Computed example of a mutant assay.
Amino acid sequence: MSSQSLQQSSPVLAKILTYFLLLLSSSATSVAAAGKKVTAIIVFGDSTVDPGNNDYIPTVARGNFPPYGRDFDGGVATGRFSNGRLVTDFFSEAFGLAPTVPAYLDGSYTIDQLARGVSFASGGTGLDPLTAQIASVIPLSQQLEYFKEYKERLKEAKGEAAAEEIVAGALYLFSIGTNDFLVNYFVLPLRRAHYTPSEYVAFLAGLAGAAVRETYGLGARNIVFSGLAPFGCMPAARTMNRVNPGECNEEYNRAALEFNAAVRDAVVGAELPGARVVYSELYGVVSDMVGSPEEHGFENAAEGCCGTGYIETSVLCGMDQAFTCRDADKYVFFDSVHPSERAYEIVADHVLSTALHVFL
């Protein structure tokens, strides 16, 4: 029966059919909108998400030499502080973007490539501006200035409307805070003379909230702020543990947990109309890998693959290649501070199924 005949024979039935056709059309549109992936991955933070920005600034905090990058595509040491890809690289691939997130300061990338993902992160930096000064690296404030510059480059290359669409649809990731404690507070007690641990946590949480609000003011609408892993269980922290040598430093881990709680409240509680701000919990999954490495296919969680595994990171890794392990997949940590590619992949899978699932 034709639609014309249906309308003539049963006006009520025709109206019902029309209603359901409209409903189905609306539902299909809603599903398509809900399933739309992010336009780009935009990253701020420290060495956990720095793909090589430190290669282009005068600092010793670099990873652009072997054995770093030995399991990266082509065996290239890009500046990532690991044997291969970082957690943000796995995120980018999962969202159907590029398999790696480029460093903003790497001039070999075009703005078209950077339009799908870019990292402004700098190894050694922190929320506290003093932390970046210690290592002569890029502070978070400068990373945000680079983001402003990036936005202008997008407008020039793609037009204002397209640039605004990329910025509004991008996923913004923050991974930062470990160096503030490990370097600035505990190892070099520059801030400890002026802050109790709880006061310093509150200070950093305030800076985290301010960074999220500033990013929002620059157009970000999808923001993820990562908590700290149990950095007291890093090989370097174990080595420096004077109370229980070789064991996790529980004072450091307590600081991480206190920081995580404060930052979660600061960033998720921010009143940002039209934005989705998510806290990403990492402490548990890394703690599981460290506490039960064999359950995740690892053989060693107390030492890094690089060098002797106890203290080597950055330039020290390059000096002790002869001692570096053969199979980094068996190690939770590649050097004495940074996870191996396989550990990053496990963390990425965890975050994608928890904090980031709302964006997929």
Results as ranks from 00 to 15, higher is better:
Gly52Leu: 07
Ile42Phe: 09
Asn54Lys: 12
Asn53Gly: 14
Tyr56Arg: 04
Ala40Gly: 05
Asn64Lys: 01
Tyr68Gln: 12
Pro51Asp: 06
Asp55Thr: 11
Ser47Tyr: 07
Lys37Gln: 09
Gly63Met: 02
Arg62Gly: 02
Ala61Asn: 01
Phe65Gln: 03
Val38His: 10
Asp55Pro: 03
Ile41Tyr: 10
Val38Thr: 14
Gly45Tyr: 06
Gly45Glu: 08
Phe44Met: 09
Gly35Pro: 01
Asn53Pro: 12
Asn64Cys: 01
Val60Ile: 15
Ile57Tyr: 06
Ile57Thr: 03
Val43Ala: 15
Asp50Leu: 06
Asn54Glu: 12
Lys36His: 14
Thr59Glu: 00
Lys37Tyr: 03
Gly45Pro: 09
Tyr56Lys: 10
Thr48Cys: 03
Thr48Met: 08
Val38Ser: 12
Ile57Gly: 12
Tyr56Met: 07
Lys37Asn: 11
Phe65Cys: 02
Pro58Trp: 05
Val43Thr: 14
Lys37Gly: 13
Asp46Gly: 02
Arg62Gln: 04
Lys36Gln: 15
Thr59Ala: 00
Val43Phe: 11
Asp55Lys: 13
Tyr68Gly: 10
Val38Ile: 15
Val49His: 00
Asp55Tyr: 09
Asp46Phe: 03
Lys36Ser: 09
Pro51Ser: 04
Lys36Gly: 14
Phe44Pro: 08
Asp55Gln: 10
Tyr56Asn: 14
Asp46His: 03
Asn64Ile: 06
Ala61His: 00
Phe44Asp: 06
Asp46Arg: 05
Ile42Glu: 15
Thr59Gly: 04
Tyr56Glu: 07
Gly63Trp: 01
Ala61Gly: 00
Gly63Gln: 00
Ile42Pro: 13
Lys36Ile: 08
Tyr56Thr: 11
Phe44Lys: 10
Val43Ser: 12
Asp55Phe: 01
Thr59Gln: 01
Gly52Glu: 06
Val43Asn: 07
Pro67Gly: 13
Asp46Glu: 11
Val43Asp: 10
Ser47Ile: 01
Ile57Ser: 04
Asn54Val: 10
Thr39Ala: 13
Asn53Thr: 15
Arg62Val: 05
Pro58Tyr: 07
Phe65His: 04
Thr39Glu: 14
Lys37Ile: 08
Asp46Gln: 02
Ala61Phe: 01
Gly63His: 00
Phe44Glu: 01
Thr39Asp: 10
Ser47Leu: 07
Gly63Phe: 00
Ala40Pro: 10
Thr59Pro: 03
Val49Arg: 05
Val60Leu: 14
Asn54Met: 11
Pro67Arg: 11
Val60His: 09
Gly45Ser: 10
Asn54Tyr: 08
Ile41Gly: 13
Ile41Leu: 14
Asp46Thr: 06
Ala61Arg: 00
Asp50Val: 02
Ser47Gly: 02
Thr59Met: 05
Ile42Val: 15
Pro66Gln: 09
Thr39Phe: 05
Ala61Ile: 02
Thr48Asp: 05
Pro51Met: 04
Thr48His: 08
Lys36Arg: 15
Pro67Gln: 13
Ala40Thr: 08
Gly45Thr: 11
Val60Ala: 13
Thr48Phe: 09
Val43Gln: 13
Ser47Lys: 06
Pro67Val: 12
Lys37Arg: 15
Tyr68Ile: 14
Tyr68Pro: 09
Pro58Cys: 11
Ala40Ser: 14
